[in-house]
Protein backbone atom coordinates (compact mmCIF):
# COMPACT_ATOMS: atom_id res chain seq x y z
CA UNK A 1 0.00 0.00 0.00
CA UNK A 2 2.32 2.74 -1.15
CA UNK A 3 2.31 5.69 -3.42
CA UNK A 4 4.97 5.16 -5.98
CA UNK A 5 6.44 8.17 -7.56
CA UNK A 6 8.97 7.57 -10.23
CA UNK A 7 11.86 9.90 -9.91
CA UNK A 8 14.39 7.63 -11.46
CA UNK A 9 16.66 9.66 -13.63
CA UNK A 10 15.61 12.92 -12.02
CA UNK A 11 19.15 14.14 -12.06
CA UNK A 12 19.53 13.19 -15.69
CA UNK A 13 16.35 15.04 -16.49
CA UNK A 14 17.67 18.10 -14.70
CA UNK A 15 20.96 17.92 -16.57
CA UNK A 16 19.06 17.72 -19.83
CA UNK A 17 16.64 20.38 -18.65
CA UNK A 18 17.35 22.66 -21.56
CA UNK A 19 16.09 19.98 -23.89
CA UNK A 20 12.49 20.97 -23.19
CA UNK A 21 11.23 22.33 -26.50
CA UNK A 22 8.35 24.65 -27.19
CA UNK A 23 5.86 23.37 -29.76
CA UNK A 24 6.13 25.99 -32.44
CA UNK A 25 7.67 29.44 -32.39
CA UNK A 26 4.36 31.30 -32.69
CA UNK A 27 3.15 29.87 -29.38
CA UNK A 28 6.31 30.98 -27.62
CA UNK A 29 5.59 34.53 -28.71
CA UNK A 30 2.63 34.86 -26.35
CA UNK A 31 3.33 37.09 -23.40
CA UNK A 32 1.14 38.38 -20.59
CA UNK A 33 0.24 42.05 -21.06
CA UNK A 34 -1.30 42.62 -17.65
CA UNK A 35 -0.54 41.64 -14.03
CA UNK A 36 -0.57 37.91 -13.43
CA UNK A 37 -2.16 36.43 -10.31
CA UNK A 38 -0.28 33.60 -8.64
CA UNK A 39 -3.09 31.96 -6.67
CA UNK A 40 -2.03 29.88 -3.67
CA UNK A 41 -4.18 27.17 -2.11
CA UNK A 42 -2.81 28.02 1.35
CA UNK A 43 -2.55 30.91 3.77
CA UNK A 44 0.56 33.07 4.24
CA UNK A 45 3.52 31.19 5.70
CA UNK A 46 2.33 27.74 4.63
CA UNK A 47 4.43 25.42 2.46
CA UNK A 48 2.59 26.24 -0.77
CA UNK A 49 2.76 29.95 0.05
CA UNK A 50 6.53 29.90 0.42
CA UNK A 51 6.83 27.80 -2.74
CA UNK A 52 4.83 30.40 -4.67
CA UNK A 53 6.70 33.34 -3.24
CA UNK A 54 10.03 31.73 -4.10
CA UNK A 55 8.77 31.33 -7.67
CA UNK A 56 7.73 34.99 -7.59
CA UNK A 57 11.14 35.98 -6.18
CA UNK A 58 13.00 33.95 -8.79
CA UNK A 59 10.99 35.48 -11.64
CA UNK A 60 11.29 39.02 -10.27
CA UNK A 61 15.00 38.88 -9.53
CA UNK A 62 15.87 37.40 -12.89
CA UNK A 63 13.47 39.61 -14.86
CA UNK A 64 11.81 36.63 -16.49
CA UNK A 65 8.47 38.41 -16.85
CA UNK A 66 7.77 42.05 -17.64
CA UNK A 67 4.40 42.40 -15.90
CA UNK A 68 3.88 42.50 -12.12
CA UNK A 69 3.12 39.24 -10.34
CA UNK A 70 0.59 39.22 -7.49
CA UNK A 71 0.54 36.43 -4.95
CA UNK A 72 -3.09 35.82 -3.96
CA UNK A 73 -3.76 33.56 -0.96
CA UNK A 74 -6.99 31.58 -1.06
CA UNK A 75 -6.78 29.19 1.88
CA UNK A 76 -10.54 28.86 2.48
CA UNK A 77 -12.07 25.39 2.62
CA UNK A 78 -8.64 23.69 3.06
CA UNK A 79 -7.47 25.38 -0.12
CA UNK A 80 -10.44 24.39 -2.27
CA UNK A 81 -11.25 28.11 -2.53
CA UNK A 82 -8.25 28.55 -4.85
CA UNK A 83 -9.36 25.81 -7.23
CA UNK A 84 -12.99 26.93 -7.13
CA UNK A 85 -11.61 30.28 -8.30
CA UNK A 86 -10.11 28.40 -11.26
CA UNK A 87 -13.55 26.99 -11.99
CA UNK A 88 -15.01 30.52 -11.96
CA UNK A 89 -12.32 31.77 -14.36
CA UNK A 90 -11.88 28.77 -16.65
CA UNK A 91 -10.39 30.68 -19.59
CA UNK A 92 -8.24 33.28 -17.86
CA UNK A 93 -4.71 33.53 -19.23
CA UNK A 94 -3.58 35.61 -16.25
CA UNK A 95 -4.19 33.30 -13.34
CA UNK A 96 -1.82 30.50 -12.40
CA UNK A 97 -2.55 28.23 -9.45
CA UNK A 98 -0.02 26.75 -7.06
CA UNK A 99 -0.70 23.81 -4.80
CA UNK A 100 0.28 20.30 -3.87
CA UNK A 101 -1.56 17.03 -4.26
CA UNK A 102 -4.48 18.93 -2.71
CA UNK A 103 -5.69 19.93 -6.19
CA UNK A 104 -6.67 16.36 -7.04
CA UNK A 105 -7.05 14.87 -3.56
CA UNK A 106 -9.48 17.36 -2.00
CA UNK A 107 -12.43 16.39 -4.24
CA UNK A 108 -12.05 12.77 -3.11
CA UNK A 109 -12.73 13.38 0.57
CA UNK A 110 -14.47 16.70 0.92
CA UNK A 111 -17.50 18.40 -0.54
CA UNK A 112 -15.70 21.03 -2.58
CA UNK A 113 -16.94 23.48 -5.19
CA UNK A 114 -14.82 22.30 -8.08
CA UNK A 115 -13.98 19.07 -9.83
CA UNK A 116 -10.55 17.86 -10.84
CA UNK A 117 -11.65 18.34 -14.45
CA UNK A 118 -11.93 22.12 -13.87
CA UNK A 119 -8.13 22.31 -13.78
CA UNK A 120 -5.54 22.20 -16.52
CA UNK A 121 -2.32 20.65 -15.19
CA UNK A 122 0.83 22.53 -16.18
CA UNK A 123 3.65 20.92 -14.26
CA UNK A 124 5.02 19.50 -11.04
CA UNK A 125 8.23 21.26 -10.10
CA UNK A 126 9.67 19.56 -7.04
CA UNK A 127 8.52 17.04 -4.46
CA UNK A 128 8.77 17.41 -0.71
CA UNK A 129 9.74 14.31 1.21
CA UNK A 130 8.19 13.25 4.50
CA UNK A 131 10.13 12.37 7.61
CA UNK A 132 8.95 10.74 10.81
CA UNK A 133 10.25 12.75 13.77
CA UNK A 134 10.31 12.17 17.51
CA UNK A 135 11.44 14.06 20.57
CA UNK A 136 14.15 11.77 21.96
CA UNK A 137 14.48 13.65 25.26
CA UNK A 138 10.82 13.66 26.22
CA UNK A 139 9.61 10.35 24.76
CA UNK A 140 12.79 8.23 24.81
CA UNK A 141 12.13 7.28 21.18
CA UNK A 142 15.38 7.26 19.22
CA UNK A 143 14.65 4.98 16.30
CA UNK A 144 11.72 4.03 14.14
CA UNK A 145 11.78 0.58 15.71
CA UNK A 146 11.39 2.02 19.20
CA UNK A 147 8.49 4.08 17.93
CA UNK A 148 6.74 1.03 16.49
CA UNK A 149 7.43 -1.02 19.63
CA UNK A 150 5.97 1.67 21.86
CA UNK A 151 2.94 2.00 19.60
CA UNK A 152 2.41 -1.76 19.73
CA UNK A 153 2.75 -1.83 23.51
CA UNK A 154 0.15 0.88 24.02
CA UNK A 155 -2.44 0.84 21.23
CA UNK A 156 -4.07 4.23 20.71
CA UNK A 157 -1.86 5.90 23.30
CA UNK A 158 1.14 6.94 21.20
CA UNK A 159 0.35 10.21 19.46
CA UNK A 160 1.47 11.67 16.15
CA UNK A 161 0.90 15.29 15.19
CA UNK A 162 0.50 16.69 11.71
CA UNK A 163 -1.01 19.46 9.63
CA UNK A 164 -4.76 19.32 8.95
CA UNK A 165 -7.10 16.35 8.83
CA UNK A 166 -7.33 13.81 5.99
CA UNK A 167 -4.40 15.49 4.30
CA UNK A 168 -0.89 14.26 3.53
CA UNK A 169 0.29 13.98 7.15
CA UNK A 170 -2.68 11.94 8.32
CA UNK A 171 -2.40 9.76 5.22
CA UNK A 172 1.21 8.93 6.11
CA UNK A 173 0.17 8.04 9.65
CA UNK A 174 -2.53 5.69 8.39
CA UNK A 175 0.02 4.09 6.07
CA UNK A 176 2.34 3.52 9.04
CA UNK A 177 -0.52 2.06 11.05
CA UNK A 178 -1.39 -0.36 8.30
CA UNK A 179 2.22 -1.36 7.58
CA UNK A 180 3.02 -2.05 11.22
CA UNK A 181 -0.36 -3.15 12.56
CA UNK A 182 -0.44 -0.39 15.15
CA UNK A 183 -3.03 2.09 16.36
CA UNK A 184 -1.62 5.63 16.56
CA UNK A 185 -3.62 8.63 17.77
CA UNK A 186 -3.35 11.30 15.06
CA UNK A 187 -3.76 14.89 16.24
CA UNK A 188 -4.29 17.56 13.58
CA UNK A 189 -2.92 21.11 13.95
CA UNK A 190 -3.37 24.11 11.71
CA UNK A 191 0.13 23.87 10.23
CA UNK A 192 3.14 21.61 10.12
CA UNK A 193 5.26 24.00 12.15
CA UNK A 194 2.64 24.09 14.93
CA UNK A 195 2.70 20.29 15.00
CA UNK A 196 6.52 20.32 15.14
CA UNK A 197 6.49 22.66 18.13
CA UNK A 198 4.18 20.31 20.00
CA UNK A 199 6.69 17.49 19.54
CA UNK A 200 9.66 19.73 20.34
CA UNK A 201 7.93 20.78 23.55
CA UNK A 202 7.43 17.14 24.53
CA UNK A 203 3.62 17.25 24.45
CA UNK A 204 3.28 14.74 21.62
CA UNK A 205 5.50 11.71 20.85
CA UNK A 206 6.03 12.05 17.12
CA UNK A 207 5.10 13.93 13.98
CA UNK A 208 5.36 13.55 10.23
CA UNK A 209 6.67 16.61 8.49
CA UNK A 210 8.50 18.10 5.55
CA UNK A 211 12.17 18.43 6.51
CA UNK A 212 12.34 22.23 6.68
CA UNK A 213 9.55 22.52 9.24
CA UNK A 214 11.47 20.53 11.86
CA UNK A 215 15.03 21.34 10.79
CA UNK A 216 15.69 24.03 13.39
CA UNK A 217 14.28 21.92 16.21
CA UNK A 218 16.55 19.07 15.11
CA UNK A 219 19.56 21.39 15.31
CA UNK A 220 18.43 22.47 18.77
CA UNK A 221 18.21 18.86 19.90
CA UNK A 222 14.45 18.95 20.47
CA UNK A 223 13.60 16.66 17.58
CA UNK A 224 15.21 13.71 15.86
CA UNK A 225 14.48 12.25 12.41
CA UNK A 226 13.57 8.55 12.64
CA UNK A 227 13.13 7.62 9.00
CA UNK A 228 12.31 9.13 5.64
CA UNK A 229 9.47 7.98 3.37
CA UNK A 230 11.44 7.65 0.15
CA UNK A 231 12.61 4.65 -1.82
CA UNK A 232 16.27 5.68 -1.49
CA UNK A 233 18.12 7.73 1.09
CA UNK A 234 18.32 11.48 0.60
CA UNK A 235 21.33 12.82 -1.27
CA UNK A 236 22.46 15.74 0.93
CA UNK A 237 25.55 14.71 2.90
CA UNK A 238 26.25 17.98 4.79
CA UNK A 239 26.15 17.36 8.52
CA UNK A 240 23.07 18.98 10.10
CA UNK A 241 23.15 18.02 13.79
CA UNK A 242 24.56 15.32 16.10
CA UNK A 243 27.05 14.38 13.38
CA UNK A 244 24.12 13.28 11.19
CA UNK A 245 23.35 14.48 7.68
CA UNK A 246 20.10 14.11 5.71
CA UNK A 247 21.73 11.16 3.94
CA UNK A 248 22.24 9.37 7.27
CA UNK A 249 18.50 9.15 7.93
CA UNK A 250 17.41 5.59 7.13
CA UNK A 251 14.53 5.06 4.75
CA UNK A 252 11.44 3.81 6.53
CA UNK A 253 11.66 0.47 4.76
CA UNK A 254 15.21 0.04 6.12
CA UNK A 255 13.99 1.06 9.55
CA UNK A 256 11.23 -1.54 9.56
CA UNK A 257 8.18 0.47 8.49
CA UNK A 258 7.13 -0.83 5.11
CA UNK A 259 5.95 2.41 3.53
CA UNK A 260 8.04 2.88 0.45
CA UNK A 261 7.62 6.20 -1.22
CA UNK A 262 5.36 9.02 -0.14
CA UNK A 263 6.03 12.40 -1.67
CA UNK A 264 4.27 15.72 -1.85
CA UNK A 265 4.57 17.19 -5.35
CA UNK A 266 4.50 20.98 -5.69
CA UNK A 267 2.12 21.48 -8.58
CA UNK A 268 1.14 24.29 -10.96
CA UNK A 269 -2.28 24.60 -12.63
CA UNK A 270 -4.50 26.83 -14.76
CA UNK A 271 -8.23 26.96 -15.47
CA UNK A 272 -9.42 24.17 -17.77
CA UNK A 273 -10.07 26.41 -20.79
CA UNK A 274 -6.96 28.55 -20.46
CA UNK A 275 -5.46 29.34 -23.89
CA UNK A 276 -2.95 26.73 -24.97
CA UNK A 277 -0.31 29.33 -25.82
CA UNK A 278 -0.61 30.85 -22.34
CA UNK A 279 -0.32 27.43 -20.73
CA UNK A 280 2.76 26.73 -22.82
CA UNK A 281 4.22 30.11 -21.84
CA UNK A 282 3.80 29.52 -18.11
CA UNK A 283 5.04 25.95 -18.35
CA UNK A 284 8.17 27.23 -20.04
CA UNK A 285 8.45 29.99 -17.45
CA UNK A 286 8.37 27.46 -14.61
CA UNK A 287 11.03 25.47 -16.41
CA UNK A 288 13.19 28.60 -16.44
CA UNK A 289 12.46 29.19 -12.76
CA UNK A 290 13.85 25.73 -12.02
CA UNK A 291 17.25 26.86 -13.25
CA UNK A 292 17.46 30.08 -11.20
CA UNK A 293 19.81 30.15 -8.22
CA UNK A 294 16.93 31.27 -5.96
CA UNK A 295 14.85 28.24 -6.75
CA UNK A 296 17.78 25.84 -6.57
CA UNK A 297 18.63 27.18 -3.15
CA UNK A 298 15.02 26.74 -2.05
CA UNK A 299 14.95 23.14 -3.25
CA UNK A 300 18.25 22.39 -1.54
CA UNK A 301 17.23 24.01 1.72
CA UNK A 302 13.99 22.05 1.83
CA UNK A 303 15.77 18.82 0.84
CA UNK A 304 13.33 18.41 -2.03
CA UNK A 305 13.50 15.92 -4.84
CA UNK A 306 13.92 17.91 -8.03
CA UNK A 307 11.91 16.44 -10.87
CA UNK A 308 10.22 18.76 -13.33
CA UNK A 309 7.31 16.91 -14.91
CA UNK A 310 4.99 18.11 -17.62
CA UNK A 311 3.12 16.95 -20.70
CA UNK A 312 1.82 13.43 -21.16
CA UNK A 313 4.23 11.90 -18.72
CA UNK A 314 2.89 14.25 -16.06
CA UNK A 315 -0.73 13.41 -16.92
CA UNK A 316 0.05 9.73 -16.52
CA UNK A 317 1.72 10.47 -13.19
CA UNK A 318 -1.38 12.36 -12.02
CA UNK A 319 -3.70 9.52 -13.03
CA UNK A 320 -1.48 7.10 -11.13
CA UNK A 321 -1.51 9.39 -8.07
CA UNK A 322 -5.28 9.74 -8.08
CA UNK A 323 -5.69 5.99 -8.37
CA UNK A 324 -3.31 5.47 -5.43
CA UNK A 325 -5.05 8.01 -3.24
CA UNK A 326 -8.40 6.52 -4.13
CA UNK A 327 -7.18 3.16 -2.90
CA UNK A 328 -5.73 4.50 0.36
CA UNK A 329 -8.75 6.68 1.10
CA UNK A 330 -11.09 3.82 0.39
CA UNK A 331 -9.24 1.72 2.93
CA UNK A 332 -9.37 4.62 5.43
CA UNK A 333 -13.07 5.14 4.81
CA UNK A 334 -12.47 8.76 3.86
CA UNK A 335 -14.02 8.77 0.40
CA UNK A 336 -17.12 10.85 -0.14
CA UNK A 337 -20.21 8.63 -0.28
CA UNK A 338 -20.79 9.49 -3.93
CA UNK A 339 -17.39 8.19 -5.03
Amino acid sequence: MTIRISHAGAMVALALGCGFAMPGAALAEWQPDRPVELVVSAGPGGGSDIFTRVVQAAITKNNLVKVPLLVVNKPGGSGSEAFAYAKDNPDSAYKVYFGTQDAYVLPLTTKVNYAYSDLKPLAAMVSDVFILWSNPKASGINTAKEFVDKAKAAPGKIRAAGAKAKDADETVVTLIERATGTDIAYIPYKSGSEAAIQVAGGHIEANTNNPSESLEQWKAGNQKPLCVFTSERLADKTVVADGMSWADIPTCVEAGIDVKNFLQPRTVWMGKDAPAEAAAYYTDLMKKVMDTPEFKEYAARNVQIVDFQTGDKYKAFLDQQIANYNEIYKANGWLLPSQ
Partner: peptide
Protein backbone atom coordinates in the same frame (compact mmCIF):
# COMPACT_ATOMS: atom_id res chain seq x y z
CA UNK B 1 8.49 29.63 13.78
CA UNK B 2 4.80 29.86 14.62
CA UNK B 3 3.43 33.23 13.50
CA UNK B 4 0.81 34.92 15.67
CA UNK B 5 -1.03 36.83 12.93
CA UNK B 6 -1.55 36.98 9.19
CA UNK B 7 1.00 39.77 8.92
CA UNK B 8 3.55 37.83 10.94
CA UNK B 9 2.92 34.84 8.68
CA UNK B 10 3.83 36.84 5.58
CA UNK B 11 6.97 38.10 7.32
CA UNK B 12 7.90 34.54 8.27
CA UNK B 13 7.53 33.52 4.66
CA UNK B 14 9.90 36.37 3.83
CA UNK B 15 12.40 35.11 6.37
CA UNK B 16 12.50 31.74 4.69
CA UNK B 17 12.83 33.27 1.23
CA UNK B 18 15.80 35.34 2.45
CA UNK B 19 17.36 32.05 3.53
CA UNK B 20 16.75 32.28 7.27
CA UNK B 21 14.90 29.56 9.14
CA UNK B 22 13.05 30.77 12.20
CA UNK B 23 13.80 28.51 15.13
CA UNK B 24 15.73 28.27 18.37
Amino acid sequence: GVPGSATAAVMMGGLMIWGLNPGP
